[in-house]
Design a protein around this nucleic acid. Structure first.
Length: 965
RNA sequence: GCAGAGGUAGCCAAGCUAGGUCAAAGGCGCAGGCUUCAGGAGCCUGUCGCGAAGGCGUUCGUGGGUUCAAAUCCCACCCUCUGCACCA
């Protein structure tokens, strides 16, 4: 299974030890240097770190290393998230001996048997994974300052204190409120059932129905609907004659609902006393009164009515509800059934739809039309749902209410819905209840219901004022990639209040209300501030009780008097000031990077809470987002068995290979795909690179500076620029690709081109190269750096600075000339199938260059025509003699120039006349070797030239004529 | 359903925000050659088609349009992926 090549393990261990010995990643405030603070969202410790963590965190580390090399005092801290339910849940499952989990722990996480036994203790489990995780983080070479490591929850009391401070301040500022909230609830577990705790019903969430209270004697028939506006078109009621209904006191009123509805309502803050149970048939044929227009209408049998859904009571609006219309039609066909319930069939036959919504493309009764259009057979036809959804959407978005709806007439359904519900509730003709549109089953096999949690604590992310400030924070930060900015704005708008406390799991208790624990996504929003002070807490053994709110206010807000605080807290004033200065030095966070799945929650909360708790100068400065990693094209999951832990990958491929493979996978919001083949390829590459650089160092060669040398130096500078610019905006893939492959290819070409490479040039280039790859593959780079005889760490070496003066456009063009000459010659030999013995190149005559450059100059202003160029050129007597050839030449050149891009023209003009003859002469031996033929170079006007086929006259600037024989 | 991202040659994947230097970077795979005792090593060449002179033709999800010129801009359509909450 192990794949790692030769010596990676040794190299990696060596440099890791060296780094740790020298403490080079421990960063302390240094007012003389600019700081840079990067963070990675601490990972949740219910399992080992996996390659997905590795992807994001590698990007963070690359950025940290890049900024460090650029001279910033860079801090990259690390911590562990223990808050939440799953660790506790997993421990419980271990205790129960859940075979699936035990298998995964053993086989995927690689937990040894004797450790596994102790996993019944969630804290042990969290500790275990934290230990393992730290080892992986060290091994992959993240440049972390470990003095600031911590984990969350009350098991880290000083952190808990910080969280308490945070929540008390949030509450004071009015960002925390109390309210009620519907959740999917498991009556057995007595807790909310999140998506991943379900056997069935993934993605199903509570939906709110409006209950319209129709009068039935001294009781109410609360009919459930999403479309209360349709009450104006009610014609009858449907009750399932086969289902069991009950009569109950609900908050003191007498309600008739399905048997199943009663327990649901009692979980939704309603007092329900069941008084009597009976078959739905009992109601059929009776009548009820509609509370709006006081009409008396019949109750009809509706077998399609599900007692499982909401109240099991349905009112009928045949004009706008296809299901109702089709149900009525069905009844008309069953007069005998009707008679059985004592209903005169004529009653049903006489029911006429009542239209209340006007909608484009439909007439008075949209439901009737759609039923015909789709050819719906009966109430059990699956197309009923389709018809319903078409009409519902159409009417909701474009429907306008008719005069029959009274005060709502003329308005769009969409606009008045909320208002109408409100009004109806005030008039006590409506109520509401939640229900699940589909069945949800908890992992414990119990069917879930909706429960309304009362006394729930919320963070008021719906607050428009708060949102506004959060938007501002997003706008004031750098966002990489830039496209993610809109994504943030969208999500900030979309977020509503967030229940920030739970009853179970690990965490920090809510300071002001016992029995609540601050929920996991809510205790991880501004903890980066804690990184700045935890070092002091450890160093001076500060106790949690010493960390009073006043102490935090002093450190984070500069509030209060240090001397007084020192007395009250027992923390020496120097330490207090040290913490304050440290916070003020490092804050704000300069860069936080995560996968895009965290944008709608964690990263948005991170922004929200920073704006709530900190002044503008401490708002986040940079946010990076990246895609989600898949494995061999598949979403990574333990159950699929394609779960790759970081440790596993490190064991098999080593740190550098893992890092580079990950980072070459994708950038921006694209999802990277981990492929083992790629990792193997990278391994081979890095090995080759090690050898290649090794060989370069050993080379002997000339020192004469030729065009190729200038070309290489120039090209390398361009690479420096590309890599640097890409890294600045977190385009880590582009940067790695250029630093490794493109630059390598440049050097390779140079080696091929030169017989005796210029060792001074090579040395310069290699030293740049090793530094460019250092953020990506720090271990190998460190090794190579020392191989080059350097005494310092490449991790701390100065990042190569783009040197404009080394750019040599003429040298670049010259090299292009050599390449294209080769290509063209090969193309000719291929087309003619000649095996060349002799090749002649004829460079363009001086007058052609003059004409070419003149044309370029004229073309600066825009399109050029023959006569414009011609006129001026002919003033020159030398050219005048060539007038005939000039016309032919110009006609070709002008078309090309007119088609060329602006910057190309500019570039060519800047270069001026290129001494093609010298360039080709310099490359002659190379061309001879490559083309395997005798090479001659002539100026086209050279009287001595060998040109049997008269090719020479075809030459153009940058396009020497070629003759092959 | 709502929102976001994306469809590029055998595969992965750049380029497309500033249209021309794009038959389209780079990697992988494949084919051929060289080097090597050997090699999951290295080097070179080719990898849309045609071509007896550096050329031509046809490609960048589909169909239209704008332009002297479009993978790149506009419109319509088809398809794929991701998120949608109290949970890490």
């Amino acid at each position: 299974m192990k794949f790692m090549s030769n010596n990676w393990a040794k190299i990696e261990e060596k440099w890791r030890n060296e780094w740790e010995k020298a403490h080079i990643f421990e960063a302390d405030p240094d007012p003389t240097r600019k700081k840079f603070f990067v963070t990675f969202p601490y990972p949740y410790m219910n399992g080992p770190l996996h390659i997905g963590h590795g992807f994001t965190a590698t990007r963070v580390d690359i950025y940290a290393r890049f900024m460090r090399m650029k001279g910033f005092n860079t801090l990259f801290p690390w911590a562990w998230h223990w808050t939440g339910e799953p660790i506790v849940g997993a421990a419980l499952r271990v205790q129960k001996g859940d075979p699936e989990l035990v298998k995964a722990l053993k086989e995927i996480d690689g937990v040894p048997e004797d450790e596994l036994r102790r996993f019944v203790d969630p804290v042990y489990m969290a500790n275990y994974y934290t230990r393992e995780g730290k080892e992986a983080v060290r091994r992959i070479g993240f440049s972390v300052d470990w003095r600031r490591e911590f984990h969350t929850t009350s098991l880290e009391p000083t952190y808990s204190r910080f969280i308490e401070w945070q929540y008390e301040r949030l509450r004071e500022k009015g960002y925390v409120t109390k309210g009620t909230h519907p959740v999917v609830w498991c009556p057995n577990c007595e807790s909310p059932t999140g998506d991943h705790d379900r056997l069935e019903g993934e993605g199903v969430s509570p939906e709110e129905y409006t209950l319209l209270k129709f009068q039935y004697g001294d009781a109410y028939l609360p009919a459930a609907t999403f479309r209360p506006e349709t009450i104006f078109g009610v014609t009858n009621m449907f009750i399932n004659p086969e289902a069991v209904y009950i009569e109950a006191k609900v908050n003191g009123e007498k309600w008739i609902i399905s048997k199943e509805a009663a327990p649901k309502l009692s979980e939704q803050l309603k007092r329900v006393e069941v008084q009597r149970e009976f078959k739905g048939a009992e109601l059929i044929g009776k009548s009820f009164t509609d509370p709006v227009s006081r009409r008396t209408l019949p109750i009809l049998p509706g077998w399609f009515v599900s007692p499982e859904s909401a109240t099991g009571v349905v009112y009928s609006v045949p004009a706008h509800a296809p299901a109702d219309w089709i149900a009525l039609k069905d009844l008309v066909k069953k007069p005998d059934e009707l008679r059985k319930y004592g209903i005169d069939p004529s009653v049903v036959e006489n029911i006429k739809p009542i239209s209340l919504i006007r909608v484009e493309e439909y007439g008075e009764f949209p439901a009737v039309e759609i039923v015909e259009q789709l050819g719906v057979k009966d109430q059990f036809d699956p197309r009923v749902d389709e018809a319903t959804s078409i009409i519902y959407r159409k009417e909701f978005h474009t429907g306008v209410l008719k005069p029959i709806t009274g005060k709502y007439a003329g308005k769009r359904v969409q606009e008045v819905k909320a208002e109408l519900i409100e009004d109806f509730k005030k008039l006590n003709i409506a109520d509401s209840m939640y229900d699940l549109p589909e069945k949800v089953v908890c992992r414990c096999a119990t069917t879930c219901i909706v429960k309304i949690l009362s006394d729930q604590w919320f963070l008021r992310y719906s607050d428009p004022e708060w949102k506004k400030v959060a938007h501002e924070a997003v706008d004031s930060a750098s966002v990489f990639p830039e496209e993610a900015r809109t994504y943030f704005h969208d999500k900030l708008d979309w977020l509503h209040d967030w229940a920030c406390a739970r009853r179970t799991g690990l965490g920090t208790p809510l300071p002001w209300s016992s029995g609540w624990i601050i929920e996991t996504l809510s205790d991880s929003t501004v903890y980066m501030a804690f990184y700045t002070i935890v070092k002091h807490i450890r160093l001076h053994g500060i106790k949690p009780e010493q960390l009073t709110n006043a102490v935090f206010d002093f450190v984070f807000y500069g509030k209060g008097d240090g001397e007084i605080l020192a007395k009250s807290s027992g923390i020496p004033v120097t330490v207090l000031n040290g913490m304050k200065e440290e916070f003020e030095y490092w804050y704000p966070v300069d860069m936080r990077v995560s996968a895009k799945e965290l944008v709608p929650n964690h990263l948005s909360f991170f922004i929200f809470q920073h704006t709530a708790l900190f002044p503008k100068k401490h708002w986040p400065r940079g946010i990076g987002v990246n895609g989600m990693l898949s494995i061999e094209g598949q979403k990574m999951s333990k159950s699929k068995g394609n779960f790759l832990t970081l440790r596993n990958s490190l064991n098999r491929f080593g740190a550098d290979v893992t890092r580079l493979t990950l980072v070459l996978g994708a950038e921006g919001m694209d999802d990277p795909d981990w492929r083992e083949e790629n990792a193997k390829g990278i391994d081979a590459r890095l090995m080759a690179l090690q050898r290649f650089v090794g060989d370069l160092v050993k080379l002997h060669g000339g020192v004469e500076a030729k065009t190729v040398d200038r070309w290489l130096l120039s090209t390398v500078q361009r690479r420096v620029k590309t890599v640097t610019d890409a890294l600045e905006v977190m385009k880590t893939r582009t940067a790695a690709e250029v630093a490794f492959f493109e630059l390598w290819n440049d050097i390779r070409w140079y080696m091929r081109r030169t017989e005796a490479p210029n060792i001074k040039v090579l040395r310069e280039v290699t030293e740049i190269w090793v530094r460019l790859i250092a953020p990506f593959t720090p271990f190998l780079s460190e090794e190579l750096w020392h191989f080059l005889g350097k005494e310092n760490f490449v991790s701390l070496a100065e990042w190569p600075v783009y040197d404009n003066t080394k750019i040599d456009k003429a040298a670049e063009e010259s090299e292009e000339l050599v390449k294209s000459l080769m290509e063209d010659t090969v193309s000719i030999t291929k087309a003619t199938k000649i095996t060349p013995k002799r090749i002649c190149f004829y460079v363009a005559a001086e007058w052609k260059w003059k004409a070419y450059i003149e044309a370029l100059k004229k073309a600066q202003a825009g399109k050029i025509e023959m006569k414009d160029v011609m006129k001026d050129l002919l003033k020159n007597p030398e050219i005048q003699r060539k007038a005939k050839d000039l016309a032919a030449f110009l006609s070709k050149i002008i078309v090309e120039i007119n088609m060329a891009a602006e910057d190309l023209k500019k570039r060519k003009l800047e270069i001026g006349v290129l001494d093609e003859k010298t360039v080709i002469e310099e490359a002659k031996r190379f061309l001879q070797k490559e083309l395997n033929a005798e090479i001659s170079v002539y100026n086209e006007e050279d009287p001595q030239k060998y040109d049997p086929k008269n090719r020479a006259s075809q030459s153009k600037p940058y396009r020497p004529a070629i003759y092959v024989e």
